[in-house]
């Protein structure tokens, strides 16, 4: 990916920012390609919003180089604002205008707006075009936020925690809208603390903890997740002990686990022993580390330093 340097929508080098004595960002490097959905994943207070707000031009950085669509957000804020769309964490919008009026109003701020009808189609709000904003559901308001961000037909969209506080069906609504954006060729940068959201939406993601990026990659292979040990878990009846060559470890009364990279072979060994011994392997299952496991490992205290052993 780094070889396509010129097609980067966002390029960040050595970004640092502190608030008073607190170091919010301690040297962040980031490269986001055009047309990509990129997720910044991390716990509250990790620095996600700070990064995004520096990229949007809301905050000034202390150190580092930042180029968003080739523009330095601090030097040419207006040139940047024309080409980006922002969905903030809070959904504040004038409540007494209709959906169409709202989008039209924001469109009027941009030199080359996208037609209002087309935008409402993209976010699935055509049926609500004359509804007052205050009568929209949470999911619909969020889709309106995206519609407003699309008003100026931006090349790049920032979505800060787009589904926090939403019920599952409202989240689905918003997810579908975000997926649609990619088909328009937009670059999307989103922050989230939901694993499933990052996994479903993102082409690539970065995990941020304590103001640093601790892992970066595709959701399926992040931090070597695909190469990590799988765990075979099973329980045995009273008085039965697994033979030593299986390398099983007892985790609770009657419960055992085998950590392995050779799942097929070890499963074969285990089941053939069980068949010949006439033992029933209760609760037999194979677990692989989920994105959540990797995330927790990297973001909980001391986790970042342990990440090396997880990968081995």
């Amino acid at each position: 990916m780094d070889s396509h340097y010129s097609s980067a929508a966002i390029s960040v080098r050595g970004l640092k920012k502190s608030y008073g004595n607190t170091l919010a960002l301690r040297g962040v490097d980031l490269e986001i390609q055009q047309g990509e959905i990129f997720a910044l994943l991390g716990p509250n207070g990790a620095g996600k919003t700070t990064i995004v707000e520096i990229l949007e031009g809301f905050r000034h950085r202390d150190e580092g180089d930042v180029a968003v669509l080739g523009i330095d957000p601090n030097r040419q804020p207006m040139a940047l604002k024309i080409r980006i769309g922002i969905v903030l964490q809070s959904t504040g919008v004038e409540r007494y205008l209709s959906v169409a009026e709202t989008v039209k109003m924001y469109s009027s701020y941009y030199p080359h707006p996208r037609p209002v009808g087309e935008i409402l189609g993209l976010v699935g709000l055509e049926a609500k075009r004359d509804e007052r904003v205050l009568r929209l559901s949470g999911g619909q308001q969020r889709r309106l936020d995206v519609a407003i961000a699309l008003a100026g037909d931006p090349d790049l969209l920032f979505l800060d925690e787009p589904t926090t506080g939403f019920d599952p069906s409202a989240r689905r609504e918003v997810w579908e809208v975000i997926k649609n954006l990619q088909s328009l060729g937009k670059t999307v940068v989103l922050t989230t603390h939901f694993m499933d959201e990052a996994q479903y939406l993102a082409d690539r993601l970065a995990i941020i903890a304590n103001g640093k990026i601790v892992a970066e990659g595709e959701p399926e292979t992040l931090a070597g997740r695909d190469r990590m040990l799988a765990t075979v878990r099973f329980s045995l009846p009273d008085g039965v002990v697994p033979p030593l060559h299986l390398g099983a470890r007892m985790t609770a009364a009657h419960a055992y686990e085998v950590k392995t990279t050779l799942v097929t072979k070890d499963l074969f060994d285990l089941t053939s022993w069980a068949m010949s011994a006439g033992v029933d392997l209760e609760d037999l299952r194979v677990d692989r580390p989920t994105l959540e496991d990797v995330y927790l490992e990297l973001t909980t205290e001391g986790g970042a330093s342990k990440s090396k052993e997880v990968e081995s």
């Binding site: 949007e56 031009g57 809301f58 207006m78 604002k81 024309i82 922002i86 903030l88 809070s90 504040g92 919008v93 924001y106 701020y109 941009y110 030199p111 407003i148 008003a151 100026g152």
Partner: peptide, 8 residues
């Protein structure tokens, strides 16, 4: 207001 600040 913040949203407006993010527009041109």
């Amino acid at each position: 207001l913040k949203r407006t600040r993010g527009t041109p």
